[in-house]
């Protein structure tokens, strides 16, 4: 792929111009959030929205941090456990569905998969009744369980497609050596699974961190994740905009960091979400 492959090079300036315009569109909100979060509350007014702060004011972050630190901790606990558990279960399911094909697997798989597309409103009322009956209502554990279950379809899908590309011959070799179900998994597949795990973990991390509907209906004040706290802060009244903006940055930072550092895997998860990948 050399730079000379395109015969219409003279149009290249136009391509760059359009790309820069598009970049501005994508970056404008980021610019506004950052400068607003660094302005003094008193100096925020609508007509000077776009101007840089006259004086850099870091206090909003300190305030947002005091308000949000417990919520961030909730989010981390929730995301950590839900991601790990759903990834492990998804890996096992993917292994079974791709390497131990049984009759009816072609029916079971889409039935599992459908669970990731449903509007969660359609299970919301029974969900919290169920949570109440098993005593997990309002706790982070209950939210973890919820995210594990509704995360299973996507993690299963990604691992199934990932393992499908590992040739069966490798397993056959293991079988000849006398390895059973778990032996094959731990000796042959698991060591090869790292990229699959990275994709799944990043995907689940982003999804769970960003989720709102379950979070708002299944938690109490002390188990709230960050998204709920942010929505309530910003939806509240007469708050000056510096605080919600600083809060938005805090809420966005973990997933943004993951995206910037591990973008390649992030995109792969994104593409895997469209079923065929």
């Amino acid at each position: 792929m050399t730079a000379t492959r395109r015969p219409y090079k003279r149009w290249h300036w136009l391509v760059y111009l359009l790309l820069v315009i598009a970049s501005v569109f994508f970056l404008i909100p980021a610019y506004l959030v950052i400068i607003t979060s660094l302005k003094e509350p008193a100096s925020i007014n609508l007509s000077t929205t776009w101007q840089l702060p006259e004086r850099w004011y870091w206090q909003s972050f300190a305030e947002a941090w005091t308000a949000f630190a417990p919520k961030l901790r909730n989010s981390f606990t929730l995301t950590f456990f839900a991601t790990i558990i759903s990834a492990l279960m998804g890996s096992m399911n993917g292994y079974v569905l791709s390497k131990w094909r049984f009759r009816g697997a072609n029916i079971v798989f889409p039935i599992m998969l459908f669970g990731m597309f449903i509007p969660y409103q359609s299970i919301l009322i029974p969900l919290f009744q169920f949570m109440r009956s098993i005593g997990l209502y309002g706790s982070i554990a209950g939210l973890i369980l919820t995210h594990v279950v509704y995360g299973l379809p996507i993690t299963t899908l990604i691992f199934r497609n990932y393992y499908a590309e590992i040739p069966d011959e490798m397993l056959d070799a293991g079988k000849i050596d006398g390895a059973g179900f778990f032996g094959l998994y731990s000796r042959v597949l698991f060591p090869l699974s790292l990229p699959g795990f990275v994709v799944v973990i990043i995907w689940q991390f982003t999804q769970i961190w960003n989720e709102f509907l379950f979070a708002v209906t299944l938690t109490r004040t002390d188990s709230q994740p960050i998204t709920v706290a942010l929505a309530q802060l910003a939806g509240g009244e007469a708050v000056k905009w510096n605080l919600p903006m600083a809060g938005a940055i805090l809420a966005a930072l973990p997933t943004l960091l993951v995206y910037i550092l591990l973008g390649r895997f992030f995109i792969r998860g994104l593409l895997a979400g469209s079923v065929k990948g």
Binding site: F128, Q129, T221, G236
Partner: peptide, 26 residues
Amino acid sequence: VDNATVTGGSGVNARAVLKTRMLGGD
């Protein structure tokens, strides 16, 4: 004392949260 406030004038959001909690037996 746990001061659990849910913002939103005239309780527009709080009432929804309260209901999920009461229905949730909490």
